[in-house]
């Protein structure tokens, strides 16, 4: 797959703060990529540099094979800080942004109506933006970012401030756009959201890239080689099995985590346990992105940094 975005050795500093440090990225075309990290990790700065809104101190960025300045008409962008012209009517606002992206004509008016219906905002076209709630304004801005049918869509925290119902609406549209072949990058500090819909993730922390891979590979690479089993009788010892290296009770103390040996086949072992032992349930343990991220931070920056990151993510 061709890279739709190439970030080459990019750094950006604000005063004493290094927001992005020697970042290298290559986002393939057609992916739904989660751009992840805690607050202040450098996500928005990187995205703004990708959009040529701000410029890197060093390094260079190519978007759609050129500078983002030359490719703006083919990029849809929803910034982190939402903004609309308060006195402007909703339809006029979307039309104005579309005009700036080079889209005009009667089809545009039909598209605006269709999109307003699609995000469940029928009948607001003639209303002034200031008459809408924050969530509604956010949906209007989302439409403004994709109304010109761009090839690449960059969404900075698209779900922040939305209620669960609207999160689902926007989430399903993002999924549909991805199905249509659009490349979508969205940043979030809620790692669970990315885990649910992304097929690729980029994680950054303190301006450094931590992970950049397909989500399947990420899970594979960070496979803890664990099986969780819930036996009917907790007084059972699985360490007699040759594939089990050790056995430990889970936090809830109603199940065991079985750490497997490096050459063990978890599927075969599950079949073997299920056939020989009375159990309520058994499954392969997949690490969450949050755990992977914290482990990565711990590897690179130590346990204290990992602890701080864990707390930050817990409060996000």
């Amino acid at each position: 797959m061709n890279a739709i975005i190439e970030v080459n050795n990019v750094s950006k500093t604000y005063g004493e703060t290094k927001a992005v440090s020697e970042l290298n990225l290559s986002i393939p075309s057609g992916v739904l990529c989660g751009f992840l990290g805690p607050n202040g990790a450098g996500k928005s700065t990187t995205i703004r540099m990708m959009m040529s809104i701000i410029h890197p101190d060093s390094g260079y960025i190519q978007v759609l094979g050129t500078s983002a300045l030359d490719a703006k008409d083919n990029i849809g962008y929803l910034p982190e800080e939402r903004g609309v012209y308060r006195k402007m009517r909703v339809g006029t606002f979307i039309q104005y942004i579309a005009n700036l992206k080079g889209i005009r004509g009667s089809q545009l008016k039909r598209d605006i109506d269709n999109w307003l219906d699609r995000v469940e905002l029928p009948g607001v076209k003639k209303k002034k933006c200031e008459e809408l709630s924050k969530g509604m304004q956010q949906k209007v801005q989302f439409i403004a970012s994709i109304i010109h049918n761009p090839e690449l869509i960059i969404l900075d925290e698209p779900f922040s401030g939305l209620d669960p119902l609207n999160t689902q609406t926007i989430g399903s549209i993002i999924h549909e756009l991805h199905q249509e072949g659009k490349t979508i990058i969205f940043s979030t500090h809620v790692l669970q959201q990315a885990e649910e819909i992304c097929d690729r993730i980029v994680m950054i922390d303190k301006g450094h890239k931590v992970i950049d891979d397909d989500i399947a590979h990420v899970h594979e690479a960070h496979n803890p080689n664990l099986i969780q089993v819930v036996p009917l009788d907790l007084n059972i010892d699985f360490t007699s099995l040759p594939e089990v290296e050790r056995q430990s009770l889970t936090k809830e103390e109603d199940a065991y985590h079985l750490k497997l040996t490096a050459d063990a086949d978890p599927v075969k072992l599950i079949q073997s346990i299920a056939g020989s032992t009375p159990i309520k349930g058994i499954e392969i343990v997949k690490p969450t992105l949050t755990e992977i991220f914290i482990n990565k931070v711990a590897e690179t920056e130590g346990q204290d940094a990992a602890k701080a990151t864990r707390e930050q993510l817990a409060h996000a």
Partner: peptide
């Protein structure tokens, strides 16, 4: 100032220089 305080400026800069 209105475009800055309304935060609409970043939307505009995503479309034009």
């Amino acid at each position: 100032i209105e475009e800055k305080s309304n935060k609409v400026i970043e939307v505009l800069l995503s479309a034009i220089s």
